[in-house]
């Protein structure tokens, strides 16, 4: 027990085990990527073909044939649109609560969090009927409104925790110089909080991009984002696995990259600051 060097080296099987597990977990994504470069026949051949001439045919097919651009655009519009809208609501609110807390601030924050606990299926029926009445079914606008509302609590929370970390003295100095709260917010706080706002926005974009309860229930074609478009491949007529793979890979790749880059910030956002 006295030799320090003995407990520094982990056993040799650790790297092996860790890599085997990592590859196994990632394998379905890898396999999907591989399938996207096969022909439809190769995609369903048994035993699976490992050696094949890669083709870009599926990608061109998907892009040409299925109004793919519209679904991509819908996904971009709802996720970025709802994120911007949520930020517009949340930045002033988080600013007010972080820098001018009252005794009601903690309970306001918790109440906002609690709206996130509402199971979507509990309000599915009224939302569907409401959307039907208002003509919002199968529209980007309708989905955008819903996503703004479901992400707003998380966005407020994350911004609140970031704003709390901004040193108060800087704002104090501005205040002494006669800045009013609006100037303080826009000219002093926002430039300082850009990294925090960016990672909050990223989390909101990721969550909206992958949201698949409301998109499946409230949209079908015109307003459908990629989640709903991919689901249309589940119908049993025909096996278009190679095309499904190509469409899927294009749908998940950007978010996967963004997620990988911002994993650290996501943790505090996903746990409402409970784990940092």
């Amino acid at each position: 027990m006295s030799m320090p060097s003995t407990f520094q080296k982990p056993p040799r099987w650790i790297p092996v085990l860790a890599w085997v597990i990592a590859i196994l977990i990632f394998f379905p994504i890898f396999w999907m990527a591989l399938t996207s470069f096969k022909t439809e026949t190769e995609a369903i051949s048994t035993p699976p073909s490992l050696f094949f001439v890669p083709t870009m045919e599926n990608y061109t097919d998907v892009i040409d044939r299925s109004n793919y651009a519209r679904f991509v655009w819908n996904s971009i519009a709802v996720s970025f649109g709802s994120t911007l809208l949520a930020l517009a609501f949340a930045i002033p609110a988080a600013y007010a609560m972080a820098f001018f807390p009252t005794k009601r601030t903690p309970s306001t924050l918790l109440w906002m969090l609690s709206t996130k606990m509402m199971p979507p299926v509990g309000v599915l029926i009224p939302m569907y009927l409401l959307f039907k009445t208002l003509g919002l079914l199968d529209t980007v606008t309708g989905l955008l409104i819903i996503y703004t509302l479901i992400n707003l609590p998380i966005v407020v929370w994350m911004l609140y925790t970031y704003f709390k970390d901004v040193p108060g003295e800087i704002l104090e100095a501005g205040r002494v110089d006669g800045a009013n709260p609006m100037q303080e917010l826009f000219l002093l706080l926002l430039p300082l909080a850009v990294p925090g706002i960016a990672s909050t926005g990223l989390l909101s974009v990721i969550l909206s991009w992958n949201e698949a309860f409301w998109s499946l229930n409230l949209t079908s074609s015109q307003g459908a984002p990629l989640t709903a478009f991919i689901a249309s491949f589940s119908s049993p007529q025909g096996l278009f696995w190679a095309k499904l793979s190509a469409a899927s890979l294009m749908a998940i790749a950007p978010i996967l990259v963004v997620g990988w880059m911002s994993q650290r910030q996501l943790v505090s956002g996903l746990t409402f600051g409970a784990v940092k």
């Binding site: 597990i21 990592a22 977990i25 990632f26 379905p28 994504i29 396999w31 999907m32 990721i206 991009w209 992958n210 698949a212 499946l216 990629l226 989640t227 709903a228 991919i230 689901a231 491949f233 589940s234 499904l244 793979s245 899927s248 749908a251 998940i252 978010i255 996967l256 963004v258 997620g259 990988w260 994993q263």
Partner: peptide, 15 residues
């Protein structure tokens, strides 16, 4: 290992 979390549910299920 963390990759599957960023895959949209409809894609995961179909794969």
């Amino acid at each position: 290992v963390i990759a599957p979390f960023f895959v949209m549910p409809t894609v995961s299920a179909l794969v």
